[in-house]
């Protein structure tokens, strides 16, 4: 069945010793969608992303990313997906340009094309002026932008962003959220956004999934969740309220 889903999982489960990190997760993300992946720390968001990229083996269940099984062909998936890990590290001795060139080489982007992509990615995230600066001297916000630039130069079909605004000041957070929205709108990029900045997620996500203790307790457009949980119409709710409601029920 052709569903047009970029991400599809079916009963995806990951059990670590003595604990189930992801419990029978089934969800999908459609093309061009921004899907907000919500949940408290330890809910299993990162684990899910790692399984979708083939970086961790699921205990059971299955996943398809752009029609490919990440377990079987992780390299293929990673060629098509841009991933921004949480707490991403950088090579401190490289400058921004060199960092992106290295990523371009790993992705086998031809040199002639790489330079153009690097320049445009740096401009998009707004650190073009700092291209020659060592990443070791970057602020947290600049590093996060560079991380997004790393995603952009791959020209990916979809991006998995794991807490992209964690530890950033409100202004930088806003800019990054706007950037993500821009990429989805203008570049038709599918985005899976893990975050617990509910306020921002509410602003840009088309649909959300709320994950608690490894299980996805709700998913759908915000308005739908609001109606189910709060019984109110649009405008008069916040995602925070909905989220807390689910959280209390657990």
């Amino acid at each position: 069945m052709e569903t047009g889903a970029v991400i599809e999982t079916h009963n995806l489960t990951k059990a670590y010793k003595g604990q189930t990190a992801v419990d029978n997760l089934s969800f999908d993300v459609q093309e061009g969608e921004i899907f907000g992946f919500l949940g408290p720390n330890g809910a299993g968001k990162t684990t899910t992303l790692l399984m979708l990229l083939g970086l961790t083996e699921p205990t059971s269940g299955s996943a398809k990313v752009i029609g490919i099984d990440p377990c079987r062909e992780p390299v293929k998936v990673k060629r098509l997906i841009g991933y921004l890990p949480e707490n991403m590290g950088f090579y401190r001795d490289l400058n921004a340009w060199e960092t992106l060139r290295f990523i371009a080489e790993l992705n086998e982007i031809p040199r002639s094309e790489a330079d153009g992509r690097i320049e445009s990615a740096l401009k998009t995230v707004g650190i073009y002026k700092e291209a020659e600066k060592k990443v070791g001297a970057f602020s947290r916000g600049m590093r996060q932008r560079l991380g997004i630039a790393e995603v952009l130069i791959k020209r990916p079909k979809a991006a998995f962003l794991d807490e992209p605004t964690l530890g950033l000041d409100p202004d930088t957070t806003n800019r990054i959220i706007e950037l993500i929205e821009f990429l989805a709108r203008e570049r038709r990029m599918t985005v899976l956004l893990s975050s617990h900045f509910l306020h921002h997620v509410q602003k840009i996500c088309h649909r959300v999934g709320i994950m608690i203790k490894g299980r996805m307790v709700a998913q759908g457009p915000l308005s739908q969740l609001a109606e189910e949980k709060l019984g109110v119409g649009q405008e008069s709710y916040t995602l925070e309220e909905i989220y807390l409601k689910y959280f209390q029920e657990e």
Binding site: L53, L55, V75, K76, K78, R79, Y83, P85, N87, M88, G89, F90, Y91, R92, I103, L106, N107, E108, E150
Partner: peptide
Amino acid sequence: EGTLSKLLSQP
């Protein structure tokens, strides 16, 4: 330094 997950998320 967290660069391993970056490397491994490349194809």
